[in-house]
Amino acid sequence: MCLTPKTGRMERMLEIKNLSVLRIERKKSVPILNDINFAVKEGEMFCLVGESGSGKTSLALSIIRLLPKSFKIAYGEILINGKNILGINERSMRNIRGKEISIIFQDPAAYLDPLFTIGTHLQESFHGKMANKKELISLALQEVGLDSEIQTVYPHQLSGGQQQRVMIAMALINKPSIIIADEPTTALDVLTTRQIISLLNAIRLKHSPAMLFITHDLELAMEIGTRIGIMYRGNIVEIFRPGVQKPYHPYSKILLGTIERKNSKLVVGVEKNKFYNEQISQVCVFFDMCDEKEENCKKIIPFIWHNNETGVRCIKSGRNTQV
């Protein structure tokens, strides 16, 4: 089998340490991501969940270093197979993109160049030896459940599900050690979503890459994720194992409440119009909306790790961790 993972990799494939990202505006800088810490291991499906605007996509783009120009990585480290990619130049970054780390985007119709056939797209994303190019392309297509004949077809002639399968094939073709899926099912219907999810899961089990699955659908994340990171206003407020632990952070509970529909009171719009950058240095990010806040919350809350894998950014976490 050609697509088996290489041996001798570092165990932690994607590791992010103290990452902070700012958006530079005319006079001020707005924090987009604040003190992000987590690691995704080989064969793991790490799900990032958060509402829109919480910085999920910015995080994905900073991992491949393709943030828009106005965004700036203020400090932190992004380690890919043990190598900090923030320190390397653009040329070596280009060799990492697509090869060691690939990304599946949200809306496949917009992310495929309308002028080129599927075959051209696949050839373009292929970085290996030219000799077995054709073979590997049809192999990758086969793996995502597409016919080899699809190569002569243009993107607009395919359905959304097929387009997303093509994107997955493009991401797979170089056997990357990290796959980022940025809301890959948002533009798809329920049944197609199911198919794509099971495809991604099958790929994870087969090639065991580190998968970072970004979604706003907590229900989906609970189902497929080995760990879930909850994002709120540029912070990861909690990382937990679904099925093993229950989330603790008040915001995570609100999100969970929306699935279980028990806690209708909590389904209130989170205020978006307030920039939190003025408050960030003073209080907990969730201070305004929190029902359980107390005086102690008016300070910077660090991310408290329970073990190396799970943790929460809440002051009360020490008192009640186990459920």
């Binding site: 491949i64 393709l66 280009r94 060799n95 990492i96 993109r97 697509g98 090869k99 690939s102 990304i103 985007f105 992310y111 495929l112 160049d113 373009e124 994303s125 970085h127 994107m167 493009m170």
Partner: peptide
């Protein structure tokens, strides 16, 4: 953006 993410 997708083309960039492929390392072109």
């Amino acid at each position: 953006l997708a083309a960039k993410s492929l390392g072109l």
